[in-house]
Amino acid sequence: MIPRILIIAGSDSGGGAGIQADIKTVTMLGGHAMTAITAITAQNTLGVAAVHAVPTDMVLAQIDAVVSDLGVDAVKIGMIGSADVANAVADRLAALDVPIVFDPVMIATSGSILADQATIAAFTRLMRIAMITTPNLPELAALGGRDAVLAHGGHLAEKGGHAEGDVVHDQLFAPDGTRIAQLTGARLETAHTHGTGCTFASALAAGLGAGLPISEAFERAVRFVRRAILSAPELGRGHGPIGHALGVVPFDALDG
């Protein structure tokens, strides 16, 4: 059966990140993407102009509609919208026995704030139910660091793109702190990286939903993002979207 991936996240009107990037990613990786939209944003490559939060009961109704009919093999959580939604989603998903990937979205690539302090505080509930949490380095620092995230009992994928230097290290840690995978690659010098975090987390969820071991799903997600950066269509006047439509090039065609 095709992997059924439920994505709980916000919408990006520019098509580069959020639900739009999630659907493209899951589709490209052979899954069926389903959505529970938490917020509608008016944004482009220059920034976020407006955010309209979806009421908590409507977010839950979307989740219930999907779970009760189509079924779910994995869940990806992105922009959550509010502390109330975070807590309600955590309660609803706790009964699901499927892999959950939590991408703790706080700041857009453009620098726009996408989560207030109350929402970030509520992230602890989501980290407790997640198989893996996928922060970039600034988000990891805001969550208290590696040990603080691992203390909630899940795996941690550290996305290294925000570090300094010509080489990027993406790392996967087990709940006990053991590093179980690392991919190292040359830094890709480009402004067109909008949607990389959403894409990585959705690619990871697609792999887990298909039954891949977590280390294999992690490595495939990293390589998918790197190739999507190289395939960016260079749209817009700011941080442009990456290119998800990558054709049938084998994943081992790009050095990790």
Rank of each mutant, 00 (worst) to 15 (best):
F102C: 07
F102M: 11
F102K: 04
F102Q: 09
F102H: 08
D103V: 11
D103E: 05
D103H: 05
P104G: 13
P104A: 09
V105K: 03
V105C: 03
V105T: 01
M106G: 01
I107W: 14
I107M: 13
I107C: 12
I107H: 11
I107F: 14
I107S: 08
I107Q: 15
A108D: 01
A108W: 01
T109K: 04
S110V: 04
G111Y: 02
G111I: 02
G111R: 00
S112G: 12
S112N: 14
S112H: 12
I113E: 10
L114D: 06
L114F: 14
A115I: 06
A115N: 11
A115P: 05
D116G: 12
D116R: 00
A118I: 08
A118F: 05
T119E: 08
T119L: 13
T119A: 08
I120L: 11
I120V: 14
I120C: 09
I120P: 12
I120Y: 07
I120G: 07
A121K: 14
A121L: 12
A121W: 13
A121N: 15
A121M: 14
A122N: 05
A122T: 06
A122W: 05
A122F: 00
F123I: 08
F123Q: 00
T124M: 08
T124V: 13
T124I: 14
T124R: 09
T124G: 13
L126F: 12
M127S: 11
R128Q: 14
R128N: 13
I129D: 00
A130T: 00
A130F: 05
A130H: 00
A130P: 03
A130Q: 04
M131A: 07
M131L: 15
M131K: 15
M131Y: 07
I132K: 12
T133C: 05
T133G: 07
T133Q: 06
T133I: 03
T133K: 00
T134I: 06
T134K: 04
T134Q: 07
T134Y: 03
P135W: 02
P135A: 14
P135H: 01
N136L: 08
N136F: 04
L137K: 11
L137F: 10
L137V: 09
P138D: 11
P138S: 09
E139V: 02
E139S: 07
E139D: 06
E139K: 09
E139N: 01
E139M: 03
L140Y: 11
L140N: 00
L140R: 04
A141L: 06
A142N: 08
A142S: 09
A142L: 08
A142Q: 12
A142W: 00
L143F: 10
G144V: 08
G145T: 05
G145F: 05
R146Q: 13
R146G: 04
R146D: 06
R146K: 15
D147M: 10
D147H: 04
A148L: 14
A148Q: 10
A148T: 15
V149T: 07
L150A: 02
